[in-house]
Amino acid sequence: MTKLRQLIPILFVIILLSISVAAIASELKKYNINSVWQYLQNISQQRKMLALLVTGFGYALMTGYDILGFIHIKQKLSVLKIAFTAFVSYAVGNTVGFTAFSGTAIRYRYYGLWGVNKIKIGELIVFTHLTFWLGLLSISGIVSILDPLTLPSAIKLPFASIHPLGFIFLSLVLIYFIISVTIKHSVTIAGEEITFPKPIISLGTIIVAGLDWGLAALVLYLLLPPNLSMTYIGFFGIYIVALTAGLISTVPGGLGVFETVMLYLRPESISAPQMLGGLIAYRFVYYLLPLIFAVVLILLEAWKKRHPK
């Protein structure tokens, strides 16, 4: 029975991934797969370089979650060390998935190495995960209300647009802020005081999340056809819906699920091969390249530890 419970999440991920692959294949069956490769080759060098630059800014901004976390737990550590750990954590977690495990292990490894108390690292990890979902619910809720996209019938949801989701998400955010204002007492664990994040810090993480996903969406926007008949703001709404679906699915990196939603919600001016080509380029620029860079940094840090001056 225990083994069955452990297998259920894995089976769920496999089923979701299989459905997504089937949906993508169905959407592309009337096209020649070579058209995807041709689109990839036709993306201009200028747009590729801009996408790389925006990706760099995006990952630099992600360190804001951990910096705010250190303010919350009232610990001091070099900004460079926080930035190193945060970048490696997000670069690995975003691509490999299972962030609750991969990101947690990386933070315990490096923050512990640099003298941060394990209880405080645990509090920081809870803070980053909690505020990540707070940011997601806030941005998704706002976008869903301001730009209530009509959902394709193929997705088969009980509502025609994402408008109801906006009210649900923002209601959860409101409940969170009510709790953050009303809970004044702290909990002491192993001599360390654990407190609920202050509203001003939570608000800061929402701003970081909005900028973070705004830059991520811009990377994909730059890798799509330049004659896209949709403003960046309109495209951002589609991106957030697809991102939310990918995260909720628990599939590593939202792989397949994110692409399926983007294909179904794409504007009419973009063909399926163009969208898939842009998504492949996006996966390479925004996920694979940062992962490679993070692995190099990890290896360099390990080498420095073994060969001190």
Rank of each mutant, 00 (worst) to 15 (best):
A100P: 10
S153M: 15
N42Q: 15
L220K: 05
A242L: 00
K81H: 00
V21P: 02
H129R: 10
I33F: 14
V296L: 13
G64M: 04
I19W: 15
L279M: 08
F167G: 12
I280N: 00
G112M: 05
T195R: 13
A60E: 08
L211E: 06
L300K: 08
K3A: 13
T55R: 01
M275D: 05
S271Y: 00
V208F: 00
I10N: 09
S271I: 07
G122D: 03
L149V: 09
I175H: 05
Y39E: 11
Y111T: 09
L247R: 13
A60F: 15
G214D: 02
K74T: 02
V296D: 08
K76C: 01
G56H: 04
K305L: 11
Q274Y: 01
L289V: 14
Y286N: 12
L40Q: 01
I145N: 01
L16M: 03
I240Q: 02
P273F: 08
L53V: 08
S26W: 11
I119A: 06
G135R: 06
P158T: 08
S180I: 00
V251R: 12
L113R: 14
Y31S: 12
A242N: 04
V88Q: 13
I82N: 04
I142V: 15
H129V: 12
I240C: 06
L68F: 10
F235S: 09
N117I: 10
I270Q: 03
K305H: 09
T250M: 13
L4Q: 10
Y110N: 02
V143A: 15
G103F: 11
I14T: 06
R266D: 01
S186H: 07
R283V: 03
L52G: 03
Q6V: 09
V187E: 04
L255E: 08
I73G: 03
I248H: 08
I238E: 04
L300V: 11
S140A: 15
L130R: 09
K120Y: 08
F127S: 01
L276R: 02
D147Q: 15
E268T: 13
R5A: 14
G246H: 05
G204R: 02
T131C: 06
K305Y: 10
T205Q: 02
R109P: 11
A245T: 07
I155H: 08
L297S: 04
S144L: 12
W114G: 06
L247A: 13
T244M: 12
M1G: 11
A216N: 09
V21F: 15
S269Y: 04
H72G: 04
Q38A: 14
V295R: 03
L276E: 05
L291V: 09
N32P: 07
P252R: 00
I183G: 00
Q46G: 07
I292P: 06
R5H: 13
S138Y: 07
F167C: 09
Y232Q: 01
L220W: 03
N117F: 07
I19M: 15
L151N: 04
V36A: 01
L215K: 08
V261N: 00
P152C: 13
M62G: 14
M62C: 14
A25G: 11
P226R: 07
I179V: 03
P148A: 02
Y264T: 11
L4N: 10
L165Y: 14
Y282L: 05
T205H: 00
